[in-house]
Design a binder for these strands. Structure first.
Length: 941
RNA sequence: GGGGAUUUAGCUCAGCUGGCUAGAGCGUACGAUUCACAUUCGUAAGGUCACAGGUUCAAGCCCUGUAAUCCCCACCA
């Protein structure tokens, strides 16, 4: 293969992914159940664990051979890895809707999760990224119902089982799309282990949990008010309800007091529910109505009599201080009703029509009824006032319909114990959160958690395994029994017939088992992948999902389901606005992948992002990512070109290590040449011409990336790699290598950078790896690079050369005229570094000549404290530069003043750490010298 | 009412345990150009770290208060 002039992602991506998959690169190496392949009667995983614990992670890189000299910098700081005690890394994918396309949030999720997975795979852990697909109960149901409507059908033409079968086929037809998109994003997941939320093992596990809870008395059937969508004909959990502020009216209605001519005025926003009133409440502490407590009022428009009760719920300061209580149609009133044992009369049906009301009103919609009630009250002079107010109203998060509080028999989970256990473990710090504060937020939520309604009246979901007795004869039997045979509508047990509850589980009830079912956790066997190392998901479903996984994990397995939680925020558009179809600012991740490549998308979306924050995203960052891919491609093309040349006769260490240096430079280089054996036994040498320096920089980069990844600082890791590859490797090291070609080192350093970037940009790094002549296997299965050995003094020398070169370039730019770099040579005096590295400096600074100063100083002296260097410019130009020089002297003077002021402060000298004081002293000496030289220069001018 | 965040360059964001002249990408300006890459190279400009106090030898960072923006939960007869 050859390197094209630029990287074209489209030519490689699908092929590369297919090759990875075929080679089984994404499969974890450690099995999830105990194995005993070697027949020694012990679980082989223990052995593996010991082997891999020193693998890649340990700083011991040199194999048996002693260092060339003692000053070699090795990385002394301990590796930061959250999983150092384990040989496995496991993470589950929050299952995308099996029926849908991936959106930008999925793009971010995959970029984050896959980077982690690939990183830990390279680090030598048996990594398992488990993919999933969600039946997305309600979401998919809404889509399917719309589809039915389009075909002129309604759900009521079919039985529950028929509907289930139809949706199954509908989803099966659509499925696969999202899986292809995950592949296009480079998700390195174990496809064989894909879990669908309606898989048999999921349903089994959910039933087992439900049964356990049933036996533990945590499941109860309750007639409670639930938020009910009249359009979708289903109830919701509290968390699914969307509250919106709306304008409404507060009406004052007079209720006549029984046996008196007096009336009591109540305020309500829902006059139509008055038929369901069970009482009028007044505050027990208010003095206004004390004498009325215990009396009865006559409900208007009907002849019913209801009591006046005392309850805290009535706020004496609000409205008239008296409130009508409708237990069947208001959440607060329901609670009041419970306290006072009031009857619950349902007056609105599930389809939103009036029932159990006088004939005139029967069958009206709530809205029609409201109008009629108001009209009739007005006619009887019972309507005493109205006021416009703003109050929040519950809406269906899918269709926007106003939700109706509805009295329904539903299955509830008593969450008290679940929440208490979860809080205990959270407070013990067993799960680390990124961002940290979410732990507190979660605990706060759990403390106020109410019982969980798990019944949904939609067919597309897991059937609730509860059956109701139909035979009245056998009165001793319980009304409800648990049974797993939900494929049957009716079962018989002990001669008694039972019929299945038609409802299905709330999606979150099954989803809360996700870490358990995906890892195949069982009661019997130790599973090295449970708990998960990390749960990565959106911060918006902290309560809905993360909280429930924690409660369920603890309930089922006794352990927290994951050790760490990383929550990402929303991806906003370029202007920080929420993406929405109506605004038309939705970014489609797949389109970006097609246009710029998968890697570009991943690098782009990780940039400028930190845990838990809603942050902007735009094409610009993807373009920056694309450019980096192309840069790395061309770097590799360049290196391969050099390796190709050099490899023909002999690539051994001796022959390639001849710097092409003229003048006196080679002596310095030779004196500072160091030979090293890298960890894979390939020899390389280094010299002062940027070679030791690049090793140092790469080591620092690795160090930084490892630290960042341990703390989920993806954006920082990417930025570090970007700067190292581009600003350091390409701009300085490769430029230097155009003069001094060190083939083994070029190979070694390039490999290192390619592997380090691989977690974030898997495709381009693999494309390069496959294109290079000397690499083997897949970079996706490579080993995380060890630190490079180098000579720190030599590295620091190159740092000085960079300073000199930068100063030359800057000064040349600021001189009047154009093309200065071509016009003026560089003169040095008494400077061995420059003398020994003339060729390099000349090439990097792009000056025409470098010569020793002959005779008196001339030209323009460079503002470097420790080097005596002159740009050989004519007097005229120097004098034009005078102003800039004066400005420079003033600037340095200001810095010097600041430093001096600090040293004059006795408290600073006494209290600041010694090394800082020493540094300050050093800086003062340097600045003073610099100022002195600049002043001399000015005098010359 | 309860809880959680944000405010740093024109834009989007870093800035870790308080420590040298507060950084990056994009954008802008100026310059370069056969020899890996115009998806390029070089140089530069651009900051009252929201505001006001305080602690400290030293504050973008810690403390107190203020303002603006945003999110979540609960309630709203």
């Amino acid at each position: 293969m050859t390197f094209a002039k630029s990287y074209e992602p489209g030519e490689f991506e699908s092929e590369i992914y297919a090759a990875w998959e075929a080679a089984g690169v994404f499969k974890p190496s450690v099995s999830r159940v105990p194995t005993d392949d070697d027949g020694n009667g012990r679980d082989d995983r223990e052995v593996l664990e010991k082997v891999s614990s020193r693998d890649g992670v340990a700083p011991a890189r040199r194999h048996g051979r002693s260092a060339p000299h003692t000053s070699v910098v090795t990385s002394g700081s301990p590796r930061v890895t959250p999983f150092s005690s384990s040989s496995t890394f496991s993470i589950v994918m929050p299952p995308p809707n099996a029926n849908g396309n991936l959106h930008i949030g999925h793009g971010l999720t995959v970029a984050l999760e896959d980077s982690l997975t690939r990183y830990y795979r390279l680090r030598g852990l048996s990594s398992w990224y488990i993919p999933g697909a969600d039946h997305a109960g309600f979401e998919t149901w809404v889509v399917y119902e719309r589809f039915l409507e389009k075909q002129g059908h309604t759900r009521f033409e079919f039985s529950r089982d028929e509907l289930y079968a139809r949706v199954w086929d509908f989803v099966a037809e659509q499925r696969g799309n999202m899986e292809l998109q995950l592949r296009a994003l480079g998700a390195s997941c174990a496809w064989d282990d894909l879990t669908f939320t309606l898989d048999e093992n999921v349903i089994d596990r959910v039933y087992s949990t439900f049964e356990k809870m049933w036996k533990d008395g945590m499941i109860y059937r309750g007639e409670k008010l639930v938020n009910f969508c009249p359009k979708h004909q289903t109830a919701f959990a509290d968390i699914e309800v969307e509250h919106k502020d709306e304008k409404g009216t507060l009406w004052d209605i007079a209720y006549k007091i029984d046996g008196s001519s007096k009336k009591i005025i109540v305020s309500t926003t829902r006059p139509e529910t008055l038929f369901g009133d069970a009482a009028v409440a007044v505050n027990p502490n208010g003095e206004r109505y004390t004498d009325l407590i215990g009396k009865f009022v006559c409900l208007p428009l009907t002849d019913k009599k209801i009591p006046i009760i005392a309850d805290e719920h009535a706020d004496p300061a609000y409205g008239t201080g008296a409130v009508k209580i409708t237990p069947a149609h208001d959440f607060d009133d329901f609670e009041v009703g419970e306290r006072h044992n009031l009857p619950r009369l349902q007056v609105i049906s599930e389809s939103g029509k009036m029932i159990n009301v006088p004939a005139d009103y029967e069958g009206l919609s709530t809205e029609e009824c409201r109008k009629k009630v108001l009209k009739d009250l007005k006619n009887q002079n019972l309507l005493r006032g109205e006021k416009k107010i703003v109050h929040s109203v519950a809406h269906c998060y899918k269709c926007g319909t106003t939700l109706e509080p509805m009295l329904k028999e539903q299955w509830f989970v008593d969450v008290e114990k679940l929440a208490a256990v979860a809080i205990k473990h959270l407070e013990a710090g067993e799960i680390k959160f990124y961002p940290e504060n979410k732990c507190k937020v979660l605990i706060n939520y759990l403390k106020g958690l109410k019982d969980w309604n798990i019944s949904r009246q939609i067919p597309w979901g897991i059937a609730i395994p509860m059956f109701k007795k139909v035979d009245d004869a056998a009165t001793d039997e319980p009304d409800w029994i648990f049974d797993r045979r939900t494929n049957l509508r009716e079962i018989e047990k002990g001669g008694v017939r039972y019929v299945r509850d038609e409802d299905t589980f709330d999606t979150w009830f099954s989803s809360s088992h996700w870490p358990i079912v995906c890892t195949d956790w069982t009661e019997e066997n130790f599973n090295p992948y449970y708990p998960l190392n990390v749960m990565e998901t959106g911060a918006d479903i902290l309560f809905a999902w993360v909280a429930r996984m924690i409660m369920m994990g603890l309930y089922v397995t006794g352990e927290v389901p994951f050790r760490e939680v990383y929550l990402h925020g929303l991806v906003l558009d370029a202007h920080g606005q929420k993406m929405s179809k109506s605004k038309g600012n939705v970014i489609n991740p797949m389109e970006l992948v097609t246009r710029f490549g998968s890697d570009a998308f991943r690098l782009g979306i990780l940039r400028g992002r930190s845990a838990g924050m809603n942050q902007a995203f735009s094409e610009d960052s993807v373009i920056a990512g694309r450019n980096l891919c192309n840069k790395l491609w061309n770097i590799s093309r360049f290196v391969q070109g050099i390796v190709g040349e050099g490899s023909e006769p002999n690539t051994s260490f001796a022959s390639s290590r001849r710097p092409v240096v003229t003048g006196g430079a080679s002596s310095f280089a030779a004196a500072h040449a160091n030979a090293y054996e890298s960890s894979d036994s390939e020899l390389y040498t280094t010299n002062a011409m940027g070679e030791d320096w690049i090793c140092r920089e790469i080591n620092e980069c690795l160090e930084q990336v490892e630290r960042d990844m341990a703390e989920y600082r993806f954006a920082e890791a990417v930025e570090t790699l970007y700067a190292t590859i581009w600003d350091k490797y390409a701009d300085w090291f490769l430029e230097s290598q155009k003069l001094f070609k060190n083939v083994p080192l070029l190979k070694k350093t390039l490999e290192t950078l390619i592997i380090a970037l691989h977690p974030f940009a898997p495709f381009v790094t693999e494309a390069i790896w496959q294109n290079l002549s000397w690499t083997e296997g897949f970079v996706a299965a490579a080993k995380w690079p060890a630190r490079l050995d180098f000579d720190p003094i030599s590295a620091e020398n190159f740092e000085n050369i960079r300073t000199i070169v930068s100063e030359v370039r800057g000064t040349l730019q600021s001189l009047p005229g154009s093309n200065n770099a071509k016009k003026y040579g560089l003169l040095y005096d008494n400077d061995s570094l420059v003398k020994d590295n003339q060729m390099l400096i000349k090439a990097l600074a792009k000056v025409p000549t470098i010569n020793a100063l002959d005779g008196a100083p001339r030209g323009l002296r460079l503002a470097l404290a420790n080097h005596e260097l002159y740009l050989d410019v004519p007097e005229k130009v120097v004098s034009e530069y005078k102003e800039a020089l004066t400005e420079r002297i003033l600037a340095v003077g200001r810095e010097l003043d600041g430093l001096n002021a600090r040293m004059m402060n006795p408290n600073y000298v006494a209290k600041a750490p010694e090394h800082l004081v020493k540094e300050t002293k050093g800086a003062i000496t340097e600045k003073e010298a610099l100022i002195e030289r600049l002043k001399q220069q000015l005098k010359l001018v």
